[in-house]
Design a protein around this nucleic acid. Structure first.
Length: 480
RNA sequence: GGGAUUGUCGUCUAGCUUGGUAUGAUACUAGUCUGGGGGACUAGUGGUCGCAGGUUCAAAUCCUGCCAGUCCCA
């Protein structure tokens, strides 16, 4: 196969969209399923998800959250119990109308989200203040029929995610939980995926249907579009009332509970690909890489093989003892050059090359994926690899932060706003808080309020659209 | 929601206008030589041309519908 066919054939800069799709497919993270908008996760893609899942699970557990599992079918009568919520999701719900040849009277929805189902159960499980707080997380998939063009990981009709649902005795406690979760999300995304995020609230228009308010974390992608990375909702008593999630307090008075829900999806994988990838393919942050180090042995004949392989084994064991995820590429019949390109396409952070020449010098070649640098290090320095991985991780985050900063600007003139929106980016622009202005801006520029960052209240400026006194300085951007 | 466009071995592709045995590369298999940035040679395997109808003596090619992918605009 020629170079053009195996590797990425377009540059990230020239054709971002095509570049992204090629990386997903050629790095073998995912493939298309035979149904519109559905994708299949391949082992290399699923490993990344598992790695994220493990980290979240640890952090959730520390916060007293345990995992459960919910079925995928929700009867229409249940889904429709909270009306705003239902109206919001209805256009994109898949329905199961038959069991075999029999029509189902109360047709079944393939869950677009599980609030209604979870809270039906919660209302059974909660009677007393002693049953609270109740905090359960569910790892599952959700289905929302996508009419718009789909894109692997970013917009699919079914997606892997976690949805957490907590119940509290007081509003204050629930609101604290909302923020606590958003913090866990932010920390994990920055630590594991090396992607900086901006946190804050969604506008009324953009909030989760059925929530009192939605908090969100948003990132700016290299093409200038915003990506919602995760949301944490304060549901107030909007669901506890229709679903009768009630508890008897210490004074023996019955109260409706206060609730939260929150989720992140495999969109995070898409964000990682876009943020760090380059013209050679995927670039994985070490903390999430299924393989952190790949060793490529090089030899000409059996004699060389006998010299090289024992040393390779030794290095492999050494790295394993240092808790490094390491893989030896001992595939026969492939040239070293082929293997180098292959692992670069797959984004493995560090590659070790070792052949007879290196053994003579008591050293190995280290190639770093994120900057393409190749250096020779002595055997004794193998134990510094964990440190190198840490270093790579922080350099990648710094680089992403810089990129994000360059794409963020303060704009207070609407003409400037309109002329610059084509190129994309995060625009910090004053807003009066009125839905009308938000809608007009969206209509005229395609940009929407992605997030109203914390502490962005500002009454000293004029709304970018109507020129009335500003309330806050949200981030406007075109989104995915 | 509106528009454009594509679908041929695993992958990329010729053939389609003007209907008549489906082309080449790469990958794959075997062997020999090779091996430090996508190796060479030799011999093989692999495709009901996205699916379903229609027109025709004959359809990858023409017509209709459907499915799936991609891009642009709102």
């Amino acid at each position: 196969m020629g170079k053009q066919d195996v590797g990425i054939t377009v540059s990230k800069k020239d054709d971002f969209s095509e570049w992204y799709t090629q990386v997903v497919l050629k790095a073998k993270l995912a493939d298309y399923a035979p149904v519109k908008g559905l994708i299949v996760l391949r082992p290399d893609g699923y490993s990344i998800w598992e790695s994220l899942k493990n980290t979240f699970d640890k952090k959730f557990a520390k916060n007293g959250i345990r995992n459960g599992f919910l079925p995928i079918l929700i009867p229409e009568s249940l889904l429709g119990k909270e009306q705003k919520h239902f109206a919001g999701f209805n256009p994109e719900v898949f329905w199961v109308t038959h069991s075999g040849t029999n029509e189902i009277g109360d047709r079944l929805a393939l869950r677009p989200t599980s609030e209604t189902l979870a809270y039906t159960l919660y209302s059974k499980w909660i009677q007393s203040w002693r049953d609270l707080p109740l905090k359960i997380n569910f790892w599952n998939t959700a289905l929302r029929a996508e009419i718009k063009a789909t894109k692997p990981f970013l917009r699919t009709s079914e997606f892997l995610w976690q949805e957490g649902h907590t119940v509290h005795t007081t509003q204050e406690e629930a609101e604290k939980e909302v923020i606590k979760i958003l913090d866990i999300y932010k920390d994990t995304v920055e630590e594991k995926l090396a992607i900086p995020v901006t946190t804050g609230k969604k506008s009324e228009k953009e909030k989760f249907v059925g929530a009192e308010y939605t908090t969100t974390m948003e990132s700016i992608m290299p093409d200038g579009k915003a990506l919602q990375m995760g949301t944490s909702h304060f549901l107030g008593q909007n669901f506890s009332k229709p679903f009768e999630v009630k508890f008897a307090d210490k004074d023996n008075v019955e109260h409706f509970a206060w609730q939260t829900s929150w989720g992140v999806s495999w969109r995070l994988i898409g964000a990682m690909i876009m943020t760090h990838g380059d013209d050679k393919g995927l670039v994985l942050p070490p903390n999430v890489a299924p393989m952190q180090v790949v060793i490529v042995p090089i030899y000409r004949n059996d004699e060389g093989k006998d010299i090289v392989l024992p040393k390779v084994k030794e290095i492999e064991e050494k790295l394993e003892s240092l808790n490094i995820r390491v893989h030896v590429d001992d595939r026969e019949g492939l040239s070293p050059g082929y293997k180098f390109n292959d692992w670069e396409l797959k984004g493995v952070p560090i590659r070790i090359e070792i052949g007879p020449k290196d053994i003579e010098k008591q050293s190995v070649i280290i190639a770093k994926r994120h900057n393409g640098e190749k250096t020779s290090i002595e055997f004794s320095n193998i134990e510094k690899i964990p440190l190198m991985l840490e270093e790579i991780q922080s350099i990648m985050l710094e680089k992403a932060k810089k990129q994000s900063k360059e794409n963020t600007m303060s704009i207070s003139e609407y003409t400037e706003f309109k002329s610059k929106i084509e190129k994309g980016g995060f625009f910090n622009s004053p807003w009066c808080g009125k839905l009308e202005c938000e809608e007009k801006i969206k209509e005229e520029t395609g940009a929407e309020i992605r997030v109203i960052p914390w502490n962005s209240e500002d009454t000293t400026q004029k709304c970018i659209y109507c020129k009335e006194q500003s309330k806050s300085i949200p981030i406007f951007a075109r989104g995915y």
